[in-house]
Every structure is written in C-alpha cells, then in structure tokens.
Simulated scan of single mutants.
Amino acid sequence: MPAVSFQNVSKSYRTARGELQALKGVSFDIEPGEFFGLLGPNGAGKTTLISILAGLARASSGAVRVHGHDVRQDYAAARRHLGVVPQELVFDPFFSVRETLRIQSGYFGIRHNDAWIDELLDGLGLADKAGANMRQLSGGMKRRVLVAQALVHKPPVIVLDEPTAGVDVELRQTLWQFVSQLNRQGSTVLLTTHYLEEAEALCGRIAMLKQGQVVALATTSDLLRGASSNVLRFKTDDALPPDLAAQARVTGRVVQLPAQNALDVERILARVREAGATAEDIEIRKADLEDVFLEVMTGAAASTAAVASPLPTEELKA
C-alpha cells in the first residue's frame, strides 16, 4: 500500500477571468520510506497539491489517500498519519515553545509527550529555547518550531513545503540531519523546494510539475543519466554573443552552457574569443538536477522527460 497516493487529481478555481485549472489529472504514488521530491516553478501547482493532501483545499476531482485513508472521507485518520511543515511562518504569540508543542500534541489526543518533545527540541537545536515565548524567536527558530509541531504526533508521512526558504546554513544542516535520520528509521518524506541541490542530495525519486501536470517522474539517478549533455562552465566580465547568451545560464560572472562533447566545447570557446570576450576558470562538469530541471521545463530534453518510471503504477506525462 502506498504511503501517499494521488489518483487523477484535478483542481480548478473560478476567477474574474474565467476558470483557472491549477491541477490537471495528477497521478503518482509515494512508497513507504521514500524520500520523494516534488519540484516545479512558481505556479506549477505544488502547494495546491499539498493543500489538498493536508485537507486545506478540496480537489475538483480525483482521490488522495494517506496510508489508504481518503483525505476527504476518512480525514481524521489521514491527518493522524500526516505531518505538514508549511511555507508560511504561523505561530501563536502567547505561548512558549514547549507549551506550543504540548498543545499540538493535545490536538491529536496525545498526553505525557514530554520525552518525545525533548527529543525534538534537542534534534532541532531548540533545547535552549524551550521556555522562550514564540514572539522572541528569530525567523529561523520559528521555522524549527514549525518542523517540531509537524512531528510532535510521530506521523509516518512528513511533508516539507519549502522548509529551508530564507533560513541560514546551520538550520539547513540541522534540519536535514534530523529528517534524514527519521527517513532512515522508516518515515516517508515529501519535499518541495527551489533549492535543487537539496533535492538532488536527499531525494531518491522526483516528480516535476509544470502548469498543473506531471512532466517528469523518475528516480533522481535516472533523471541525471537522461540529461542531454555535460556543462561547460567559465567566468567572464564580457558580453556573450547573442547565440550563446540565448542558451546560457548566467549567475553574475559565471556562465554555464550545455556541451555534448569536445567539439561543442571548442565551438563555444571559439565563439567567445571571436566576440572579443575572455573566458576564465574554465571547467566541464556533469549535468546536475538544476540542468535537468531547466531542460524539462523548457521542453528542450525530450529524452529526459521520457524517462520511464520504475514503478508500474506511475505515469509520466510529457
């Protein structure tokens, strides 16, 4: 039985401009114990899908189940099996950290939960803040409390919706160490993030959404193997010729361009020289998940988007 199952899920909204289709027949399963990534650009439908899973929104059609429990018909059991860390910082300003976690435990009928609360506080670096009022905490510390709240009832499925957005490196490391430990102990993790290096390092399988549809669904290793090219990386202070600029991924001085082989590398560097530009710190690297993501989102890599899923129940939609 899947830990989470999305079956032909669609969601539409009525707007002043007409009907907006946020999700269009999304179907895939997440198996127990998986660390699963859900990726996509802003507006792709990721948060809508998670809101339906968490019961904050209702699907227009289709079914969503958590450990076999339908999120609409058997919502109480589905909620007990699910812990969600939202994007937004939501907290009650009148309670301390420990009181907040005790109250959250009470929502699920759990008494005498201090031993697990202490473990959460220690694992998430909150032990010295247990008595602090929520208003006194920094944004990063509040984010840690949200994670603790999601885990306080020991749910078998953990949903992390942009958990490291706007937080420091220390929190990222602390969070991923703790969540990875829970995953090794059998917890299922569903992660959405715009930090693709995190998804590449953590997730065994990934689904990519674009305009409410699944456009890629495969193991992370298969997606990386399906990348269409290597990447030529160099630094320059000069303008690129237009034909290269149209293909380049530029971050400050750093330029990255797809290169199939040595001939492509020679051609690109020759074009740079012809344009009067200077390339420094030249290197060639394997394509990473960000390269694959950009190829899939722009439709430039049919071979990547056509990677077959290893599980027969899953669908891949181009």
Score class of each variant (00 low, 15 high):
E266L: 14
G140L: 05
G106M: 12
R65D: 12
G125N: 11
L223V: 10
T236G: 00
A262E: 14
L240N: 00
P2Q: 07
L224T: 06
S303K: 13
A132C: 06
K142G: 05
G131K: 10
G186D: 05
H69F: 12
R143D: 08
Y195H: 10
G109F: 11
A59S: 03
R144M: 03
V159R: 00
Q185M: 11
R184W: 02
N133E: 12
A57D: 14
A199S: 00
V84H: 07
R102C: 01
L294D: 00
L182R: 15
A77E: 15
H67Q: 13
S5Y: 08
A218W: 04
E88W: 04
R233M: 08
R65Y: 02
L217S: 13
E19V: 13
V152Q: 00
F95Y: 08
T220C: 05
R205S: 10
T15W: 04
R111C: 14
A308C: 03
E295K: 02
L23V: 06
L289T: 04
D222Q: 07
N261R: 00
Q177F: 03
L126S: 04
D70C: 03
Q256D: 08
P310K: 04
S187C: 10
V152H: 00
A308L: 07
D237W: 03
G131W: 02
M134A: 04
K235R: 15
P41W: 03
T219I: 08
V296M: 10
A148F: 01
R17H: 14
V97P: 06
D161I: 13
